[in-house]
């Protein structure tokens, strides 16, 4: 079943030198799956995620034939209706929990606020639900964490708290923008498996935006590879290492590998043709 259908998405920024196209004609569908979007910084992967939620501020312009969430075109609805979509139907986890949690509110207050906004419930009820949400992301001693401020949390805990908060309204889609890049490898695994469990058990769709090819190959079902605002290649995640596009190959070859010692790493040689070619469709 298709949860989200994006057709011909463009994100444009007018500049003094003319219009800059950050995303150029991206199309894809998302079912109940883990869809990875990989690319380097500036490839438009985060812009794609933000454009879905209409989080691009003016003067940025979002254009698309449609962005359909279960048949409802998000491009057509009002800003007020959009507020009912953000968080409630599509949630987003950003890269660094340090910047996405409110530094002057306790974790508990933030979770309770999120819960009450979504469920219109009483304070004590919201508190119980918040503690349960913290438990669901494997936080030991949730009572203490409820009283703590974000700066008292480690990065991994902060990110798990963000995930807990984002899942409180029970959204259908989670957009995770580099959710584990600020974390250690050992914690990364843990956060990913928690996210995976929650997404799978609730039958959600996940858009996983990352620059880490190995992580995406390991964690996702399907991968879009973006370069200069376009999707240059779509493949099954487990076949990422057999990718054929020279850009994907270049990225894979520039990674050091423990099993293949080399004196020098391959440096990516960029071909202008990669950015000129039309976007590959990511429809399942």
């Amino acid at each position: 079943m298709t949860l989200l259908d994006v057709e011909n998405l463009w994100v444009k920024f007018p500049t003094r030198q003319g219009v800059f196209d950050a995303v150029r004609g991206v199309s894809f569908t998302l079912g109940k799956e883990r869809l990875g979007i990989v690319g380097e910084s500036g490839s438009g992967k985060s812009m794609t995620g933000r454009a879905i939620l209409r989080l691009i501020r003016p003067p940025g312009i979002v254009e698309a034939d449609h962005i359909a969430l279960e048949g409802r075109d998000l491009m057509q609805i009002s800003e007020k209706e959009m507020r009912g979509v953000r968080g409630q139907q599509i949630s987003m986890v950003m890269q660094d929990p340090k910047f996405s949690l409110n530094p002057v509110m306790t974790i508990g207050d933030q979770l309770v606020e999120a819960y009450r906004l979504a469920h219109k419930s009483g304070r004590s009820n919201a508190r119980q639900a918040s503690i349960a949400a913290l438990e669901s992301v494997s936080i030991r001693d949730p009572e203490r964490v409820m009283r703590a401020y974000p700066h008292e949390m480690s990065g991994g805990m902060g990110q798990r708290i963000m995930i807990a908060m984002m899942l409180i309204p029970g959204p259908q889609i989670l957009i995770a923008d580099e959710p584990t890049s600020a974390l250690d490898v050992s914690v990364q695994r843990q956060v990913l498996s928690i996210m995976d469990d929650l997404v799978t058990s609730r039958g959600m769709g996940l858009i996983f935006i990352s620059h880490d090819l190995n992580l995406v190959a390991d964690f996702c079902d399907r991968v879009l590879i973006m370069y200069a605002g376009r999707v240059v290649e779509v493949c099954d995640a487990d076949k990422l290492h057999q990718a054929t596009h020279p850009y994907t190959r270049g990225l894979l070859n520039s990674l050091p590998r423990l099993d293949q010692p080399r004196g020098k790493l391959d440096v990516l040689k960029r071909d202008p043709a990669w950015s000129d070619a039309p976007s590959v469709s990511g429809r399942a």
């Binding site: 380097e40 620059h211 090819l213 990674l255 004196g263 790493l265 391959d266 990516l268």
Partner: peptide, 14 residues
């Protein structure tokens, strides 16, 4: 840094 840039910096350091 991005992986392609990482490769350049690591080569430079080498």
């Amino acid at each position: 840094l991005d992986v392609s840039v990482q490769a350049e910096i690591l080569n430079l350091l080498t």
